[in-house]
């Protein structure tokens, strides 16, 4: 494997148990800076656990996770890494604007920058509504705005596009690409294969192990299929054939 000098996230031999159940069984990867990496896999495969290990909120059994050269979750990273959880982590009894302004203020950003982030996720018309009264997709977008406003160097998103209108999903992916072009590193989990093509690199997670860590094009080529859903299936079948 060629060395990756500019790895923004380096995971080595990561093992995580939740309770007695092993969730991540010795996974390693390196995520290049300024790229969009898709973390794909079925529900229950360990995607959220992997993501929580990267942002440093998951207790790990062994192995190391380094982000921007620091241990995951360490103090210097708390200004540079943003995390958007799967269920929108926002305050239901605050307005959209107040939610984003709060997270903005934690990073010394002003209300104007907060409002700009609200506009970017297409929530400008709903800025004064209470978050608790929003639809699921609107909550997700508000949660996303709370992360975008801090202009993170590493943005970690857990299933950010679930239940979103296709037009908005498209717009968000354009924004993710634009952020990466500007140098940010994005790790996006999804269980929808049609989003995989928007990523520079894919991590396919199944039952706590990476079964692929490749670019979408190489993945298609190596499995001899032209769509990623089929490529994923091919990989699983060939692994099970070996076992």
């Amino acid at each position: 494997m060629p060395p990756t000098p500019a790895a923004a996230v380096a995971v080595t031999d990561l093992v995580v148990d939740r309770g007695k159940k092993p969730v991540l069984k010795n996974v390693s990867t390196a995520i290049a800076a300024g790229s969009v990496t898709g973390l794909l896999g079925p529900s229950g495969s360990g995607k959220t656990t992997f993501i929580r290990a990267v942002v440093g909120t998951q207790q790990v059994k062994s192995g190391t996770v380094e982000v921007l050269g620091h241990p995951a979750g360490s103090k210097p990273l708390r200004r540079r890494v943003a995390y958007v959880t799967q269920d929108a982590s926002i305050y239901r009894d605050l307005s959209v604007k107040a939610n984003v302004a709060y997270f903005a203020a934690l990073y010394g950003k002003n209300r104007h920058e907060a409002m700009h982030a609200v506009e970017r996720v297409g929530m400008g018309d709903h800025a004064d509504r209470l978050a608790g009264n929003l639809s699921g997709g609107q909550k997700t977008r508000t949660s996303l705005a709370c992360a975008l406003v801090i202009e993170p160097e590493v943005l970690v998103l857990d299933e950010p596009t679930v239940g979103l209108d296709p037009v908005i999903r498209e717009e968000l992916w354009d924004q993710f690409r634009e952020l990466a072009r500007q140098g940010a590193t994005l790790l996006v989990s999804s269980h929808v294969m049609d989003e995989a093509d928007r990523c520079d690199r894919l991590l396919l997670l199944r039952e706590g192990r990476f079964i692929a860590d490749d670019t979408p094009a190489d993945l298609r080529a190596s499995t001899g299929t032209d769509n990623l859903e089929a490529a994923f299936l091919h990989l699983i079948r060939s692994l099970e054939g070996v076992n």
């Binding site: 909120t57 979750g73 708390r78 200004r79 305050y91 934690l106 990073y107």
Partner: peptide
Amino acid sequence: TGGTLERLMTTPT
């Protein structure tokens, strides 16, 4: 339980 605590723990708070 709402997940905001976990989120805050990844911020400078």
